[in-house]
Every structure is written in C-alpha cells, then in structure tokens.
Amino acid sequence: MIPFALFFICAFLAVLGAISLIVAWEPIHSALSLVLVMMSLAVLYLLLGAEFIAAVQIIVYAGAVMVLFVFVIMLLNAGTEERTNWSKFAKVAGLPLASFLLLAIAYMLSRSAIGATAANGSGVSNAGFSTRALSMALFQQYLFPFEATSILILIALLGALILARKDE
C-alpha cells in the first residue's frame, strides 16, 4: 500500500507544480514550481528502482539547471509577466484543444498493451537496474554516444560563452 500512497502523493505534487508553473505570473515562482516537479519525479524514479537516475535528476536538474534558470531570472531582473491580448482563436480554442491533446495522449497510453505490466521497483530484486549494471551499459555498449556527449557539452559551453559575451 505504501508505494501506491507514495506514487499518488508524488504524482499529485508533480501535477500541482506543473499547473502552478503555468499559472504563476512571476518567473521565479514558475522556477520554484519546476523544482517541486523535479523533486517529485526523483521520488518516482526511486519508486521505479532507478536510483542513479533519481540522484542525477536531483543533482543535475534540480541542482545545476534550475540554479542556472534562477540565476538568469535574477540577472535579467525578470518581474511580472506582461499581459497581452490573446488572439481570438487562442481565447476560444486554446484550452479545449490543449485538454483534448492531453486526454488523447493519456487515453492512448492507458489503452496500450504495455500499460498493464507491473512497474515495480520497490522491494523486488533490483539487480538488473543497479547503478553498476547501468554504468556497465554506459561504458561498454554505449561508449561512443557517451563520448559524443562530452563533445556536445564542450560545444554547448563554447556556444554559451560566445553568445553571452559582451560586444566590443
């Protein structure tokens, strides 16, 4: 019963955070809501038995990426969002279409054959999902993509430096 309770609490917090991300007018409130979403997703990853991913989620996402976001919000002194006139089409069709998309995806997923399979990471044998097995896969089978990401990071670093530099 405890995994179920934990799942529903975290799912509720994640959806709550996502809604408050959209509803908030201040960017800093949106950023903190996104941290809430990421934290509850980390708990869900733990529930699924993916402890390394949960740790990476907290360290990289909730830590590094969100600090970057908050830093940029502070740097740009981003205050309350400007309210603009919606176009007529967005006013009338926006929410119905958005909720239709959401319901369609949820319906397709819940109907798919895989849906009934148990996703249980709590308590059962976790040998196949251990950090050791993951790192084995990462450094053997996926070694080339792994090395390619380091080049990607380097390029992103240079790109960010060049973009953010002051014009002479």
Binding site: F4, F7, A11, L101, L102, I105, A106, L109
Partner: peptide, 18 residues
C-alpha cells in the same frame, strides 16, 4: 503491491500536456 506502468505513463502524458 504493484503499480501498473499505465499510471506512470498517464502522469507523464499529463505533465507533457501541461
């Protein structure tokens, strides 16, 4: 207790839609 995968998928879909 076993949580079905579909629960996670629906949550994922809801978050994506939001």
């Amino acid at each position: 207790s076993v949580i079905p995968v579909s629960y996670y998928l629906v949550l994922s879909a809801v978050l994506f839609g939001l």
